[in-house]
């Protein structure tokens, strides 16, 4: 290898390494804090390695002295419910917007793009009032309902379906499939990478969401993972940062594992839909 190229590669790896450190440092710090004894968390001496392994008591407290397992189960229910409805609605809608010609298609797609620009905080108050009037606050439905329709997913799938070969759809029509059957038997299986990518986005976002659960949930039976962590910060436990970090580690764990498993499909889905 020529010296110039070697230096270039060292430089590019140095930049990548620096980026990796910045990204990974909070996670490493979280893991270290989660096994640190409480008296050391705000200790005067900066020492990355804990003097004493306090993992057992921190993790024990995280699991035992709170409703964290229940919160994680709630997280699974809420994220699964949201994702299922999102896919059931966004895939056919995206197919229609991408491949069928009908009056008002341009206007509808314009509304989708418009919807992409509206953050959840804008409709939060009307949604809250509506749910309150329907006496649906503090339910799974209240946690999931605002996210059932996903303009981001719709946009992502539409971009994918637009590149799908027209001749295959025509072959399916000649074989006798209706448009709904084409969506689920022909188009959706081809969109699996895009579906995987979207699922990662969706599950991570709603697993980690604090804003909306904080508004609609009052009981600990309906607490989501993010609310579960919040319990360690209240007056009762007096800010037990070791247990807090242990809880945070337990909650981010499934996300990290899930991403590593779906990583390849995720990257492929992002690159092939042109939403880079």
């Amino acid at each position: 290898m020529r010296p110039g190229r070697l230096i270039g590669r060292i430089a590019s790896h140095a930049v990548l390494l620096a980026g990796a450190v910045v990204m990974a440092a909070p996670f490493v710090w979280m893991l270290l804090t989660s096994i640190r004894p409480p008296e050391e968390v705000f200790g005067a001496v900066f020492d990355p390695i804990p003097s004493r392994f306090a993992g057992v008591e921190n993790y024990g407290q995280a699991l035992g002295a709170s409703n964290l397992p229940r919160a994680m189960l709630n997280g699974v229910i809420v994220c699964g419910g949201i994702l299922a409805v999102q896919l059931l609605t966004a895939i056919p809608a995206a197919y229609a917007l991408a491949r069928l010609s009908f009056r008002g298609r341009g206007l509808l797609f314009g509304l989708v793009l418009f919807g992409l620009c509206i953050p959840i905080q804008v409709p939060a108050l009307p949604l809250y009032i509506a749910l309150a009037n329907l006496r649906l606050l503090d339910t799974y439905f209240a946690l999931m309902m605002p996210f059932f329709l996903t303009v981001f997913g719709l946009f992502l799938f539409r971009q994918f379906f637009r590149t799908y070969p027209e001749e295959i759809l025509q072959a399916a029509r000649l074989d006798g499939m209706g448009e709904f059957e084409i969506v689920w038997r022909i188009a959706a299986p081809a969109a699996l990478p895009a579906i995987a990518a979207f699922s990662v986005f969706s599950v991570v976002a709603h697993w980690n969401d604090l804003y909306w659960p904080l508004i609609v949930v009052t009981s600990s039976e309906r607490a989501t993972p993010a609310l579960g962590i919040l319990a360690f910060r209240d007056a009762e436990t007096g800010g037990n940062y070791g247990a807090l970090m242990a809880a945070a580690a337990l909650i981010t764990g499934p996300m990290i594992v899930g991403f590593l498993v779906a990583r390849r499909a995720f990257v492929r889905g992002i690159t092939m839909t042109g939403v880079r």
Binding site: P165, E167, I168, Q170, A171, A172, R173, L174, D175, G176, M177, I186, P189, A190
Partner: peptide, 29 residues
């Protein structure tokens, strides 16, 4: 409708269903 006309078509790109096997492709109609 196209499927009621009792015609079959071979496309330039062949238009095979990419996620199905050869048997699945041929069995679909």
């Amino acid at each position: 409708r196209p499927d009621e006309r009792d015609v079959a078509m071979v496309f330039q790109s062949y238009a095979l269903y990419p996620h199905m096997t050869v048997a699945g492709n041929m069995a679909t109609p």
